[in-house]
Design a binder for these strands. Structure first.
Lengths: 204, 204, 204, 204
DNA sequence: AATGAATGAGGATTCATTCAT
DNA sequence: AATGAATGAATCCTCATTCAT
C-alpha cells in the first residue's frame, strides 16, 4: 500500500539555503539600498529564508558586509592580475589589459562593484584593514604598470602614484552610472576608458 | 552694575539656532555616517538643539538631504561657472580653471563634497530630479569645454561626452580620500588633476 | 458658537507619565518575573505607556534596575538610621529598633525588598559598586551596634562581624516568603525576629 | 598497533555526553546568569555539545531546571538526614550536626546551592510542588530538632516553627556570599553558624 | 522657535525549540 | 546520540515623526 501523507498539519519543507545564497542576497540588498538602508529582513526576503536563519551563516550584518567586500576585492584583484599576466609585457598593453578587465568586472558584477566602492565606509576595525589591504594590492598593480611605462618611455606622467590612483578611481566610478541597457556596450566602454587611462598615463 | 538674576528657579535660555545651523549639522552627520546611518538625533546633537526643533526648519530628514544636495550642487556649479568665466577663453585654460575650481571646492567643503557624491542615491522623486538637473549643468559645462577644445584642435578625444563625464568623475572622487593633513596641498593636487584632465581631453 | 470637536479621527490624548511611574512599574515587573524574565514591554504595560516612551526616562533596562536598587538600598538605610537614632542608646534597644525597622520596610515595600535582594546579581560595573556601597552602610550599622553591645556586655558574640551579616541576612530573607495575608502580622513578625537577632548577638 | 585512520576526510568524532554532563552544565550556567539570563546555547557551550543535542536529554529548559532543583533539594536533605542520624541524640548535637552539614553542602556545591535558593521562583506547576515538598522536608527536620530541644529544655524559643525557618534561611543564604578564597574556612564558618543557630534556638 | 513627552513601526539580534539527516 | 539548519516569536533598543506646551 502506498504511503499517503496523513492529513495532519505539516509544516512546509524547510528551504535549504547556503552561505553563497546569503552572500548574493546581501549583495542585492546592499547594492540597492546601501548598508544602512538595507535591513536584515530585506536580505532574508531576498534569500527566501527566515530572518533568524541568516545568523546561522553570518554572525552579524557587519560581518556579512565584510565578507562581501573582501570577496569582491579579492575577485577583482585576481581578475586584474590574470589579465595583466596574460597580456604582452609592454606597459601600454598591460594598462589596456588592466582597464579592460576592470570594466569587464563592473559589467559582469555590477552589484558587487557598487557595494565595493560605496559601502567600505561602514566597515571598521580589522575587517576594514583586511579589505583595505586587498584594495591596495589593486592600486599597486596599476602603480607598477605606470612606473614601468615611465621607465620605458611609453608613459610620461610626472606623478605615477597619483596617476595610478586616478585611473583606479576612474574605472571604479563607472559602476555608479553603468546600466546594461545603456548607450555603450562593454567593449566600447572598455575601449574608451583604455584611451582615457592612457591619456592620464601620458599626461605631462 | 548688571542685574544679577534672582535665585528663583529659571530655565536655561533656549538656544536660538537657524536654518543654516541645521544644514551644517546635517552635513556633518551625513558625511560621517551616511544618510541612513545618521539619525535625526545625531543631527540635533550636532546642532546643539532638541530633536523636535529640527522640524521647525525642515519637514523631514529627506527634505533636509534634498536641500543639502541642492545647495551643494548649486554652489559647486556657480563656482565652476565663475572660474570658467573668469579664465582665458581658450579651452585648455578653461578646463584648467574648471578642474582647479572643482578641487578647490572639495578642499574647502569636504563634507558637502562627500555628501554630494555619496548620498544622492537615497533621494527619490522630484527632489532627485532637481538635484540631477543641477548636476547635469556641471557636466554640460565640461562637455562644452571639451567640444570647444576639439573644435579648436587643442583637444583630440573622440568621445567628448564620455571624456567630460570621466573628468567630472575624477574630480568628484577626490573627496573620497582627500585629507587636509595629507601628502598633497591644494595647489599641487589641483595641478596634477589639471594635467590628468588634459590627458583625458587629448587622448585619442 | 461653542467649539464642537470635529468628527475627524483624533488620536487618544497621550497619557502623561513620569519617572516614578516607570520606577514603580519596573519594581512590579522585576519583583514578579525577575530582571531577565521581565521585558521592557512588561514594564511599559504596567506603566500604561508605550515601550519606546520608557526610554525617555531611563536609558536602558539595566539603568532602571540600578536606579531601583539604589533607591531601595538608600531608603532602607535611611529608615534604619532614623530608627536607631530615635531609639534608646543601649545596644539591645538599638538592635531591636533596627530589626523592627527592617521588618517594617519589608512589610511596607515587599516588591522593593524582593528586587533588592534578588536582582543585584544582574548589575555590573559602577552601578553595582554604588549599590554595594549603600548596602555596606547598612551592614556597618549593624556591626557598630554589635560591637557596642559586646563592649557594654549586653552582647557576647565572639564574631560581631559575622553576626552582623547573619542578622542582616536573616532580616532581608524575610521578603522571600512574607505574604501580607500570612499567619504573622507585622508586629509579631518583628518581635520574633528581634528575639532571634538578640539570640545571635548573645550567642557564644 | 592501533590502526591509524586513513587520510580520507572524516568528521570529528562526535563528543559523547550524558545526562549528568548536561545537568552540570545547567548548574554552571544558571548559577552564573540565572535561569532567564542563561540560554540553552550557554548550556550547550558549557557542556561542549550542540544546542539541539541537549533536547535528547531534557525536553525543555524548564524541565532541566526542575531536575536540578529536585536533585539539589534531595541531595541536601539526604546529607542533613545522614548527619543528624549519625549525631548524638541530644538536640544541641543534632542542630550542630545539621548546620555543619548544611554549610558543608554549600561549600562543596556552591553552584547547586545558589541555584537552589535563587531559581525556584521560575518554576511553576507540578515540578514546583515536588521541589517545594523536598524543601519542606528539610525545614521539618529542623523543626523537629527545635521541638525536641524545647521539650528537653536545651532550647527555649517560644516560636520553634519560625526559628526553624530562620535557621534554614540563615544557612542557605551563606551561598550568596561564600567564596572559597574568603576569610573563613569551612570549619570556622560552620562553627560560627552553629553558634548563631543555637543562639536563635535558645532565644526567648 | 523651542522643548520634552509620546507614539508605532522597525532596527539587529537572540530565544527556545524542532526537523532532517 | 549527535549535528546543523530552520523557524517564529521575542529580546532590547532606536527610528522618524508628532503633539502639547
Amino acid at each position: 500500500m502506498a504511503k499517503i501523507p496523513s492529513a495532519a498539519p505539516q509544516r512546509a519543507a524547510p528551504k535549504r539555503i547556503n552561505r553563497s545564497v546569503v552572500l548574493q542576497a546581501g549583495l542585492a540588498a546592499f547594492s540597492l539600498k546601501g548598508f544602512n538602508g538595507a535591513s536584515m529582513r530585506d536580505i532574508a526576503n531576498e534569500a527566501d529564508t527566515s530572518l533568524s536563519n541568516l545568523y546561522n551563516y553570518f554572525p552579524s550584518k557587519t560581518f556579512l558586509l565584510a565578507q562581501l567586500l573582501l570577496d569582491t576585492g579579492t575577485d577583482l584583484y585576481e581578475r586584474l592580475e590574470a589579465a595583466v599576466s596574460g597580456a604582452e609585457p609592454r606597459p601600454t598593453a598591460q594598462l589596456a589589459a588592466a582597464v579592460t578587465s576592470y570594466i569587464g568586472f563592473i559589467v559582469d558584477k555590477p552589484q558587487a562593484s557598487i557595494v565595493g566602492i560605496s559601502e567600505i565606509r561602514y566597515l571598521e576595525g580589522p575587517s576594514r584593514a583586511e579589505v583595505t589591504e586587498v584594495r591596495d594590492l589593486t592600486e599597486q598593480l596599476f602603480r607598477r604598470i605606470l612606473a614601468d611605462g615611465n621607465a620605458s618611455g611609453e608613459f610620461a606622467t610626472g606623478y605615477p602614484h597619483d596617476a595610478a590612483r586616478a585611473i583606479v578611481t576612474l574605472c571604479s566610478a563607472v559602476s555608479n552610472w553603468y546600466r546594461p541597457e545603456g548607450r555603450l556596450g562593454q567593449q566600447e566602454l572598455a575601449e574608451r576608458y583604455v584611451e582615457f587611462s592612457l591619456g592620464i598615463a601620458r599626461a605631462h
